[in-house]
C-alpha cells in the first residue's frame, strides 16, 4: 500500500510538469508585454526594456520555462504584476475560502445525493423515484450561476433569510454551498441510484436476506458498501468540477477565493496569478484523485490486494 501511494505520488510529478508546461506556454504566447502591463502603457521605453531584462523576458522560451519550474519547486511561482507580491502568498490567502466552498459543496451533494439515490433505487419507479429523477435531471441542467442568482432573488431579496455576499459566517455560506452543490448532488443521486439498482440484484443481497437480516441493514450495509465504489469515483471527479465551478460561485457571491482572484487577474492580464491559480487547483485536484484511489482500497478489499 505504501509502495502504491509512493508510486502514485511519483506519477504526479510528470503530470504536474505537463500542466505547468501547458499553462506556461499559453500564457507565454498570449499577446501583451508583461513589462508594459506592470509599468503601465505610458511608461518610458527605456524602463520597459530594463524591466524586461530583469525579468529575463528576452531569454529563450525553454530557459524561461526551466527557470519557472526551478523556482516553483522552491515555492516561488512569480510575483503578481499588479501588487508585486509573491503569487504563492496571494493564492494561499485566498485558497482556504475556495477549499471550504468546494468542501461544503461536496457535503451538500453527498448528503443530498446518496440518501435520495438509495431511496430511489429501493423504490424503483415509485412516485418518489420519478420525482427524484426529474429533479435530478433538472439539477444537472440548471446553470449554477443562474441558480445562484435565483437563490439570491428568493432567499436574500424576498425572504431576507440569508445574505447574498461574503463568506465568513455560516449563514453567508448557505447559498454558495447550495449553488455549488446542487448539480453534483443531482449527479451523485443518479449514480447512487444506478449503482444501487445494480447491486440490489446481486446474489449476495439475497444471501443477506436469507440470513434473516433486516431490510434496512441489507440495503444500508450490504448493498451500499458494494455500491459505493463507483459513487466514490464520481464524488472525486465532482470535487474537481466543484473547484472549477467555484470560480463562478465565487464571483456571484463575492467570495474572496482563488477563482475570483483568477477572473480578476485574467481581466487585468496578470498572468503569473492565473498560471499559479491553475497550477494550484490542478495539484489539489490530483491529490483528491489520489485520495479517492486510496479510499477504494478501504472500500473494496479486491482492489487492496491488487495494490500490494
Amino acid at each position: 500500500m505504501h509502495k502504491y501511494i509512493l508510486r502514485r505520488l511519483l506519477m504526479l510529478v510528470p503530470v504536474m510538469l505537463g500542466v505547468t508546461l501547458i499553462v506556461f506556454t499559453m500564457m507565454h504566447f498570449t499577446p501583451g508585454d508583461p513589462a508594459k502591463i506592470m509599468l503601465g502603457e505610458s511608461a518610458p521605453e527605456a524602463e520597459v526594456i530594463k524591466l524586461r531584462e530583469e525579468l529575463g523576458l528576452d531569454d529563450p522560451f525553454l530557459v524561461q520555462f526551466g527557470r519557472y519550474v526551478f523556482n516553483a519547486v522552491q515555492g516561488d511561482i512569480g510575483r503578481s504584476y499588479t501588487t508585486n507580491r509573491p503569487v504563492a502568498i496571494e493564492i494561499m490567502e485566498r485558497f482556504p475560502s475556495t477549499l471550504k466552498l468546494a468542501a461544503l459543496g461536496v457535503l451538500v451533494s453527498v448528503s443530498l445525493g446518496i440518501p435520495t439515490g438509495i431511496i430511489s433505487a429501493t423504490r424503483q419507479y415509485s412516485l418518489f423515484d420519478n420525482i427524484a429523477m426529474v429533479a435530478a435531471l433538472l439539477g444537472v441542467s440548471m446553470p449554477n450561476f443562474w441558480q445562484g442568482l435565483m437563490l439570491i432573488l428568493f432567499f436574500s431579496v424576498q425572504l431576507k433569510w440569508f445574505p447574498s455576499s461574503g463568506f465568513s459566517t455560516p449563514s453567508q455560506m448557505v447559498l454558495p454551498a447550495l449553488t455549488l452543490g446542487t448539480s453534483s448532488a443531482a449527479i451523485i443521486t443518479r449514480m447512487t441510484r444506478s449503482s444501487m439498482l445494480e447491486v440490489i440484484r446481486q446474489d449476495y443481497i439475497r444471501t443477506a436476506r436469507a440470513k434473516g437480516q433486516a431490510e434496512s441493514i441489507v440495503i444500508n450495509k450490504h448493498a451500499l458498501n458494494n455500491a459505493l465504489i463507483p459513487i466514490i469515483t464520481v464524488i472525486g471527479l465532482q470535487f474537481g468540477y466543484l473547484l472549477g465551478g467555484a470560480v463562478l460561485t465565487e464571483s456571484i457571491f463575492s467570495i474572496p477565493g482563488v477563482g475570483r482572484l483568477m477572473v480578476e487577474s485574467i481581466k487585468a492580464r496578470n498572468f503569473p496569478v492565473v498560471q499559479g491559480g491553475v497550477l494550484f487547483i490542478a495539484i489539489t485536484f490530483s491529490f483528491v484523485n489520489l485520495l479517492v484511489d486510496i479510499l477504494y482500497a478501504f472500500v473494496d478489499p479486491r482492489i487492496k490486494s491488487q495494490y500490494k
Binding site: 446474489d203 449476495y204 443477506a208 436469507a210 458494494n226 472500500v299
Partner: peptide
C-alpha cells in the same frame, strides 16, 4: 445458493 462466486458479499 447455486453460485458460490456471487453469493458472498465481496467487501
Amino acid at each position: 445458493f447455486q453460485d458460490p462466486m456471487t453469493s458472498l458479499n465481496p467487501v
